[in-house]
Simulated assay, not measured.
Amino acid sequence: MTENTSTPSDEAAQNAALQKAVIVGVQPHQDGRVVDEAVRYARLLGVPLVVAHVDVTRFVTYEDPDGYVHSAPIDINFDAGAAEFEAVQAAVAPALDASGITWTARQLVGDPALAIKQLAHKLDAQLIVIGTRKRGIGESIREFFTGSVAARLAHRQHRSILVVPLGDLVPDSQKEIWPEAAE
């Protein structure tokens, strides 16, 4: 793994080494199947893997001409996003280090779909891998307000997206995907 970048020139050099990578969006406590599928495709394509975590508690203030992104917190809890990023790195590192592929982790900020889209553009990514949300009233309300990251990515960029199903599958006989939301 390479370390998270800290300067614009470091990020530009790392971006050059990561061209054509597979990008996988990862959240804390996410099912490992998402990363496993991303590893599988990175290996098949013979490209590096970029683990992307999006800190939604920060927003982009401006971007330098060389692509370096400056951000500011939305919330006064400055450490929440950093702690989540560290948790993501700790969760994926054992499997990725054992996989034998080249990988790195990136902390992105802002809207998940737009942040992943921008990273995919910078790296000319071959594939974006993300997981579905787990079923439940809280997740359905969140998706209602923020929208599906997969759907928003599919309509805002041209790269292929692999959506890995997570959680319990909905039986074909069930009309409503989130029946508890209808109650």
Rank of each mutant, 00 (worst) to 15 (best):
T5Y: 12
S6M: 12
A12E: 07
A13P: 14
Q14M: 14
Q19K: 15
Q19I: 03
K20V: 05
V22K: 01
H29C: 04
G32P: 07
R33E: 13
V34N: 09
D36P: 13
E37C: 08
R40I: 03
A42F: 10
R43M: 03
L44V: 13
L45R: 06
G46P: 06
V47K: 02
V50E: 04
V50L: 03
H53D: 03
D55P: 06
F59T: 09
T61N: 12
Y68L: 00
H70Y: 15
S71R: 01
P73S: 12
I74T: 15
D75K: 13
N77Y: 05
D79G: 09
A82S: 08
A87S: 13
Q89C: 06
V92H: 02
A93Y: 07
G100D: 02
G100F: 03
T104F: 06
L108E: 08
L108A: 10
D111I: 02
L114P: 14
A115P: 03
I116D: 02
Q118Y: 10
A120N: 02
L123T: 11
I130A: 08
T132I: 02
R133L: 14
K134C: 13
K134R: 11
G136H: 07
G138F: 09
E139F: 04
A154S: 15
R156N: 06
R156A: 10
Q157S: 05
Q157C: 05
R159P: 00
S160A: 09
L162C: 04
V164K: 07
P165Y: 01
P165M: 02
D172T: 15
Q174G: 08
W178P: 01
